[in-house]
Design a protein around this nucleic acid. Structure first.
Lengths: 222, 222
DNA sequence: GATCTTCCGGAGGGTAACCTCCGGAAAGAC
DNA sequence: GTCTTTCCGGAGGTTACCCTCCGGAAGATC
């Protein structure tokens, strides 16, 4: 991903190995402790000095970007899998349930998609496909009369944010109870339950900024 | 609250004033930055040395406890206000909306109720009244056939947790959009929308532990 | 296997919070 | 006004993370 092309020669073998070890360690550590995990732990787990980490990834962000592509691809698979389902509502639910399940088992992936998704110039193509697929997923569920007509793709961000907090609270205690919260939310998305919403949806731009806000202080309470 | 009785004499006047200033500063700072705000900022804002803060409140927790009573009382008023409403569903909604509004304007209060509520031996009496009132609020909304029958008081914790995360993301960007998320959730609580929930509710004890978990690392991402 | 280039490791300095400790100032008692 | 008791302030030690820097080790090349 960072391999210089053109005039510059290939990396030395040991450098390549270290880089790979770092990426793998980052995946593990982020999965366990979230994106604000100490970089030193990643270096240690990769069996590498902290200096080496910083040489390969001058910024924490560079490390995120390295992993973002993978998270994004995984996410795309979920949407497409959901789109392949016959019943539009089932597809819609499947997408959200699997997304949340994914977050439940990998905090890094969670933070990644709820805070860094917008930054994904890295994986621009994939990102567009995700957008398109989610739009289709929503549209067809609305057209079938099962999903309420007044929700937009941006409203799904609520689900991710909410789930992430519920997970933080209950994950260590009752690993599966997020499913209950999600089921309640999903019932709120049904057309049969729809009552007028008091406030217009977030615009894409606002959602973008909200994600960046979250990313600023990951660990923020409140 | 900390005034020693019995053999010990009353505090010196300046000590009393400092204590009051600290409490007030704590309220302000926590409201703005959440319960994990730096204590040094509180001391500064109170116009007092950090040593003085620690003498009066040896632990961060002691400071929380000082404020918890007030938050709790405020909360109790909300529930009772909601119970006074004629329509059970309106009362139920009113309670949650006002609770969330309260959190929107005071992050400290928010953290307090979603993380420290269980610790409230301090305000045991008030706490019991809150519990009782919330139970009644739920029961009567269920009996009127408006609130789904399969929710328990513990499910309301989901709402608080979710709201707190939505606020963290969107608060600085679109101050009012939490109302949209809440409205969606509320529609999910309607009897008309009810579909079977996949997982049993949290027990009170699990809810307790979940709150402590949140309190452990306030700022936790994920 | 000599030479040149790249890369590594971790010591070390910086920052931001934590909390303790004690010399001296202020309040209250007489 | 003096003396005793209580209280204050903030310097400074501690921790946990950040990131930089450079002597020397290890690959690559011939």
């Amino acid at each position: 991903m960072n391999q210089q092309r053109g005039p510059r020669r290939r990396q030395r073998r040991d450098a390549q190995l270290n880089r790979a070890a770092l990426v793998e360690a980052a995946r593990d550590v982020f999965a366990e402790r979230g994106l604000d995990a100490p970089l030193e732990q990643i270096a240690r787990q990769a069996g590498v000095g902290i200096g080496t980490l910083y040489r390969h990834f001058p910024t924490r962000t560079d490390l995120y970007d390295e992993l973002l592509t993978a998270s994004m691809t995984e996410h795309l698979q979920l949407v497409e899998q959901a789109l392949a389902m016959d019943d539009p509502w089932d597809g819609f639910c499947h997408y959200l349930v699997e997304t949340c399940a994914c977050e439940a088992r990998d905090r890094g992936h969670n933070d990644m998609m709820s805070m860094r998704f917008p930054r994904a110039k890295v994986a621009e193509a994939t990102r567009r496909r995700v957008f398109a697929a989610v739009n289709r997923l929503i549209e067809r569920a609305q057209q079938s009369g099962q999903l309420r007509a007044d929700v937009t793709p941006e409203d799904l961000a609520f689900v991710r944010w909410a789930n992430s907090r519920v997970l933080a609270a209950t994950g260590p205690v009752v690993p599966d109870v997020w499913r209950r919260h999600l089921a309640l939310m999903l019932d709120g998305f049904r057309a049969e339950a729809a009552h007028p919403l008091p406030v217009p949806p977030l615009t894409p731009r606002q959602t973008y900024r909200a994600m960046l806000t979250l990313g600023r202080r990951v660990t923020g309470a409140g």
